[in-house]
Amino acid sequence: MTAVLAVLATLADAADAAVAADAAVATEDRGFQWALVLACWVAVLAAVALVAVRSAQRGRRLARQIPEEQRRWM
């Protein structure tokens, strides 16, 4: 793993440095923390909602094709 890491590190020195500098400025900032906390919740809930809605749509489309007596569980 360290070997793979070493490769990546050498290839992406510049990118790493940029991220590190960015992080040093931002860690103390509570506003930044809140922004990421909210982003986290929104992303997770939105993803779950998207999956649920698409699943429901697909279920409805499929259910229309199946005769009533084959879906007694509803």
Binding site: M1, T2, A3, V4, A6, V7, T10
Partner: peptide, 10 residues
């Protein structure tokens, strides 16, 4: 000298 360091991974 990268090659020597990453030899096991490669």
């Amino acid at each position: 000298g990268i090659l020597a360091r990453v030899t096991p991974g490669l």
